[in-house]
């Protein structure tokens, strides 16, 4: 784990094993190793103490890759502060547990010896996350409405272009329900195809959209990133924050762009509903006209 609490990515060699025991092993950032021509198995000396490189890591930033990590006792010996810590990062598994973890740490360390503080931007982070979530939900509704309108207009146009076909079907005895069902089925197939394409595009694009919203220093992971179906695409919700939302991004180890099952189900239902209405209404209105009016009118 680095100084921001993020897990280190070891690219070569191994870690330091037991981090609580003295050891002459060292983990080097790739930049630092490169500058000093060091690789796994190389040795270097600090204050007359030789250390062996056990592994190299990539922290993802130039600053992070210029660091060296030793086991805690070794570092304390090197700094001539045995048994002391200047700072310690504690990662809590849930924001709900932050307050209780803070209390427990303070009690364990004692108020005379240590100050326990939580990330200063935690509340900002949470409120910013909510803002992003709200913004993405509004964008989702707007995109859904636009997609619905487009689908409706396309279906009306498609049905109008096929007025003559409806007239012919009526003339040879097709009941209105058969005509309506045929157009509805075609609309559903179109909507399903559009949804599939839209979902595929959104699942790839949502990571990029998430990255645009979240600070570049925050890892963004698009795990489910799905937009609503119907070809309108777009990432679902973005429960994350950072970048334009303040420095709270450092508190976040990963942000996932995802849409909840409820939102996805709502989107699917809305798009299919619009497709059905868009096909059924004009088809049935046309089917109500006397066949000869449609056939004569072409």
């Amino acid at each position: 784990m680095d100084t921001t609490g993020k897990a280190l990515n070891i690219t070569q060699g191994t870690g330091l094993g037991d981090y609580t025991a003295s050891s002459t092993g060292a983990l080097l950032g790739t930049t630092l190793a490169e500058k000093n021509n060091l690789s796994v198995g190389s040795t270097f000396t600090v204050n007359d103490q030789a250390y062996t490189v056990t592994g190299l890591f990539d922290a993802g930033t130039a600053f992070g890759n210029n660091a060296v990590y030793l086991t805690l006792p070794t570092a304390q010996t090197l700094a001539r502060t045995p048994g002391e810590l200047s700072s310690m990062i504690v990662t809590v598994n849930s924001m709900d547990n932050v307050a209780s973890a803070k209390t427990a740490l303070q009690a364990a360390l004692g108020t005379a010896k240590a100050d326990v503080t939580q990330g200063q931007n935690l509340q900002t982070a949470v409120s910013s996350l909510d803002s992003v979530k709200n913004i993405s939900f509004i964008a989702f509704i707007a995109a859904l409405g636009t997609a619905g309108l487009i689908i409706l207009l396309i279906m009306v146009m498609l049905v109008r272009e096929r007025r003559r076909e409806i007239g012919v079907l009526k003339a040879i005895g097709a009941p209105n329900r058969t005509i309506g069902l045929q157009f509805v089925l075609e609309a559903l197939v179109l909507a399903a195809l559009g949804s599939t394409v839209g979902a595929a595009i959104a699942s790839f694009a949502s990571g990029g959209i998430g990255s645009a919203l979240i600070s570049s220093t925050t890892t963004t992971t698009a795990s489910t990133g799905r937009g609503f179906p119907g070809g309108a695409g777009g990432g679902g919700g973005f429960p994350g924050q950072g970048g334009p939302f303040g420095g709270a991004s450092q508190l976040l180890s990963s942000v996932t762009a995802s849409a909840s099952p409820g939102v996805i189900a709502g989107g699917i239902a809305a798009v299919f509903g619009v497709a059905i209405i868009g096909a059924l209404v004009p088809a049935l209105l046309t089917a109500r006209i006397r066949p000869i009016e449609v056939l004569r009118g072409e």
């Binding site: 009526k170 003339a171 040879i172 005895g173 097709a174 009941p175 209105n176 109500r288 066949p291």
Partner: peptide, 12 residues
Amino acid sequence: DSRLTEYRRRDI
């Protein structure tokens, strides 16, 4: 209308 459709389908 529904019966006229049936007429066209079956008788015509």
